[in-house]
Design a binder for these strands. Structure first.
Lengths: 249, 249
DNA sequence: TTTTCAATGTGTCTTAATGACACTAAGATA
DNA sequence: TATCTTAGTGTCATTAAGACACATTGAAAA
C-alpha cells in the first residue's frame, strides 16, 4: 500500500519504465503482477515535488533491477484524458492496494511519462515484489499478459521508438553480456526489428561501425563451430551514440 | 491576467509550443514578449483537467495562429526541478501579470510538455497580443531575444528534433506556400539543417521521393531565369510520412 | 574412430545511393 | 544588346546495400 498523506508528490503525474532485456533470443520486458489481480503493470513511480522526472525514472529502474548508470531514455508523455482505467482502479481498491486515504489521489486524472531502459538480463537481481505486486517477472513481448491502463500502448510505443533508434545509434552494450558473438548480436537486432537479417551483410555493416573489438576468444561447448567472441569498444561506442550512425542529410 | 480560481487545470503542468515558420530564407519561431518586460516566451497553455495534453497544444496553436489541422508533434517533457526562473516569476508578479490569487499556483514546481509545429508563415494572421503579452512576433532562430525560464532549451531541442525528423519524413507541406520552386525547397532544408546542400544532388534526391508534382508554371518577376513551380502530391506526401523515407535497417 | 550435423566464417558480384563537379539557358536590368 | 544572376541539367567515381555459396569447426551420434 502506498501512502500519500504527505502530499509530497506532483499530483496527477507518474513515470512508467519499459525495461527491456534480452534472453533466449527474445526481447523481454520487466512487468509487475498486481497482487491477487489478473493484470500486470509497468514498473512506475510518482515524482516527488523536489525531484526531477528523470531522477524518478532512474529511481524506479534501480529499485526494480538494482542497476544504476543504465541507458534510460524518456520517449513520450501519455496525456490523454481516458488513459487510466476506472475498472482497474476499482480492482486495486477492492484488493486494498490503495489506502482509503489515497483513493481520491489515485482517482484523479493522471498523465505519465514513458521511459525505456536497456538492461542486461542476467545482471538483474531476481526482482523483489512490493506491497502492491505479487510478482515481478520478465515477459516476452510476444506473449504479454493483460496490462493495466494504457500500459500496453506505452510498451508498444517504447518498442517502436527503440526500432527507430537503431537507425541512429548502436545497441547492445546494455543488453548483452560483456562478451558476445556476432550471431548473438545479430539475433538481438533481429529480435528488436522483428525481421531476419542477412548474416554476411549484418557482419559487414556492424564491423564497419568500428565499435567492436575481437577478443580472439571463442565460445566453446556448442555443438558446431565455436563462434568468435567480441566486445564493444566503449569509447568508440559512446562516440557513435553521440554522433549518430547514418544520417540521410 | 490569467485566473486560476476555478482550479480546473492540472496543477504544475503546462504545454509550450515551438511554432516554426519560414520566411526570407530564415527559420522563424513565434514568440510572445511579456508585457513591460524584457523577456519573451513560447506560446503555451495549461491543461484543463478534462482535456488531453495534445488537445491543449492544438488550442494554443490555433489561438496564436488561427490555424487548425496543422502538423504538431509532441517532442519532449521538460521536468527538471529548477527549470522555471524565480527571477522571471518575480518580474511577472511585479508587473501584475499574475493575479495575487494565483501567485501560489504559479510558484509551484512546473513541468512542461514541448510541442513543435510547422506553419506557413504567410497564413498566420498577424497574431494578437493577450493580457500578459505586448507583442507576438516571429523571431529568427539566429537572433533570439532573452527567453523566459528554460524556453531557449525547449526551442533548441525542438530544432534538433526537427533536424532528425528530416531523415525520416519529407517536410515543407506546412512550411511553404502551395506552390514553390526547387531552390525554395532547398533553402528550407538548408535553413533547418544549417548547412549548404548541393543543388543537383538535392534535386535528384527530392524528385526521387516522388512526392512532388511539376505544375509546369514558372515564378516570374525574378531577375534571372524563372524557376519552375512545384507542389506536393498530398497523398504520396502523407504516405511518405507514414512509411518513413529512408531507414537504415 | 569416423561420420554427421548444425552453425560459423568468409568474398564477390550487382545494384542503388551518394558526392563531386561544369556548362548552358533564361529573364530582368543596365 | 550586353550583362548579370540564378535555374536547369548529366556524368563519373565512390560508397553502401542486397543477394548469394562454399569451406570450416566442434560436438554428438553412429
Amino acid at each position: 500500500m502506498i501512502d500519500f498523506k504527505t502530499d509530497s508528490f506532483q499530483p496527477g503525474l507518474s513515470v512508467d519504465c519499459v525495461i527491456f532485456g534480452f534472453h533466449n533470443n527474445e526481447l523481454k520486458v520487466l512487468l509487475l503482477k498486481m497482487k491477487n489481480l489478473d493484470f500486470w503493470a509497468l514498473p512506475g513511480g510518482f515524482v516527488g515535488k523536489d525531484h526531477g522526472v528523470d531522477e524518478e525514472a532512474n529511481r524506479v529502474l534501480e529499485s526494480r533491477t538494482g542497476l544504476t548508470d543504465i541507458f534510460l531514455r524518456q520517449f513520450y508523455l501519455f496525456g490523454n484524458v481516458g488513459r487510466t482505467s476506472t475498472e482497474h482502479l476499482d480492482s486495486l481498491e477492492a484488493q486494498g492496494l490503495i489506502s482509503s486515504d489515497n483513493v481520491s489521489w489515485f482517482r484523479k486524472r493522471f498523465i505519465t511519462v514513458g521511459y525505456y531502459a536497456l538492461v542486461e538480463y542476467s545482471k538483474v537481481k531476481q526482482p523483489t515484489v512490493d506491497d502492491i505486486s505479487e510478482r515481478c517477472d520478465w515477459c516476452s513481448i510476444n506473449e504479454l499478459p493483460e496490462m493495466m491502463h494504457d500500459h500496453l500502448d506505452i510498451l508498444k510505443k517504447a518498442h517502436e521508438t527503440l526500432k527507430k533508434e537503431l537507425n541512429y545509434q548502436p545497441i547492445g552494450i546494455n543488453l548483452l553480456p560483456q562478451e558476445f558473438t556476432m550471431p548473438e548480436l545479430q539475433a538481438l537486432y533481429e529480435t528488436i526489428l522483428e525481421k531476419p537479417l542477412d548474416r554476411r551483410n549484418f557482419r559487414r555493416k556492424m564491423l564497419g561501425y568500428e565499435i567492436l573489438i575481437n577478443t580472439d576468444k571463442r565460445r566453446t561447448g556448442v555443438a558446431h563451430k565455436s563462434p568468435n567472441l567480441y566486445k564493444f569498444d566503449v569509447k568508440k561506442y559512446q562516440k557513435a551514440i553521440q554522433g549518430g550512425l547514418s544520417q540521410s542529410w
